[in-house]
Amino acid sequence: MRKKLLLGVIVLLFNSCATQYSANLNPKTNYFNTNVFNDHKKRVTVITDLDVHADSIRHLLIVPNESHLEIAKNLDFFHDLMTFEQFEDAIIQAGLADEIKSIRNRTGLHQAAILFRPFVVLEHVGSGFGLNSRNGFRLYDPLNEQVIFENEMREGPFDPSTPTPINSYFPLYNSLLDYLRKQQ
């Protein structure tokens, strides 16, 4: 009986050790929580890192899908946030659908930045599978037609407490935070 209790206590202890993921910044560290293995300073490689004027990219960020909206909101940098689909709807509602033929390619994105409003696009790039998989973010400025920031990380060790893919975004977001805070 006692043995079982002890076991139970140990299991409970281990559970409480698991990282608490949340879409909010941790006020102590001023970053998103990640588990110990996924510290962005050690794990994430920055590939491209161009200095830009902060005010020129601040207007609007386009994220790939709705699951990014909540996290990207807490970056505390961009004035406005939209998903790709919401942005398309906004273009249609502004009556610009005929001039901007499609924003699924970079020509169209450039057109949209000129005709509609300035913005930057956050692209999620993934490749490989299992231990070889890589995840990365790419921040694209369609007005100047250049990638201003790109990072990449190898998939972290499996974290049984939260087997959801969203957690691999947090180290990437932390590295993006570093970049955004550097810009003036």
Partner: peptide, 13 residues
């Protein structure tokens, strides 16, 4: 899952 909405708009016109 994500159809190109601008193309849809053009098709409707």
């Amino acid at each position: 899952q994500m159809p190109d909405k601008l193309k849809l708009n053009r098709a409707a016109k």
